[in-house]
């Protein structure tokens, strides 16, 4: 993974609560065996009509929001299915950060492992960002990971929470798996002290 220190970009409004991962990427696009090319499936059913033509009103299709990289969403973004295809699809569609008042647990974990920043703000900031994005699509923000701040166009900064381990991994481009692989001794010791609960190979 490449180190990730900051995201700067234009913002795009999607003021809908409880956006579930089936909307972020419908299940029929999960019959793939790799991560690439999922960007075109992002929000597919909101983005395209039944005949495959783009719905002009949907934010990802509006010319003024092309190139925006920070999605401002309603509350509780990413609920539902555990599909990691959701962050893969968002990243594939050019989105590098999502701002919401809170995120579903599994989505947040998945996003952080892929360098998609889930930025938690209070309702007032969320509403301000939504208004700004709707009024002036040229509005951009800067998200700085080291200081955990999001800077609004008026210069105001708000802080956001992120767990220290994810932050460390993102800033340094460290893959979390590497950390676990380094625990070989501890894992071996646990296994030595605890008999297996079930062995799936016993009746296979």
């Amino acid at each position: 993974m490449e180190p990730l220190t900051s995201v700067s970009g234009r913002i795009m409004p999607l003021p809908i609560n409880d956006i579930d991962t089936d909307q972020i990427i419908p299940a029929r696009y999960l019959k793939t065996t790799d991560k690439d090319g999922l960007g075109k499936a992002a929000f597919y059913d909101w983005r395209y009509a039944g005949d495959g033509s783009p719905k002009p009103d949907f934010v990802l299709n509006r010319p003024e929001y092309q190139g925006a990289s920070v999605l401002i969403a309603g509350n509780n973004f990413g609920c539902g299915s555990s599909r990691e295809h959701a962050p893969w699809a968002l990243l594939g569609a050019g989105i590098q950060a999502v701002v919401s008042t809170y995120f579903a647990d599994i989505f947040r974990n998945n996003a952080l492992k892929n360098g998609l920043l889930p930025i938690i703000v209070d309702v007032a900031t969320q509403q301000q960002l939504l208004s700004l994005a709707q009024e002036d699509p040229a509005t951009s923000v800067t998200i700085d990971l080291a200081t955990q701040t999001l800077t609004l166009p008026d210069g105001r900064t708000v802080t956001f929470p992120i767990d220290p381990f994810s932050k460390y991994c993102l800033l340094n481009g460290v893959d979390q798996l590497g950390f676990l692989l380094g625990l070989e001794q501890d894992i071996g010791a646990y296994e030595a002290a605890h008999a297996p609960r079930v062995l799936t190979t016993a009746h296979a």
């Binding site: 599909r83 990691e84 295809h85 974990n109 998945n110 492992k113 892929n114 979390q176 798996l177």
Partner: peptide
């Protein structure tokens, strides 16, 4: 509990 694909790898 459910996990993502990166965690499946872990």
């Amino acid at each position: 509990f459910g996990i993502g694909t990166s965690e499946v790898g872990h």
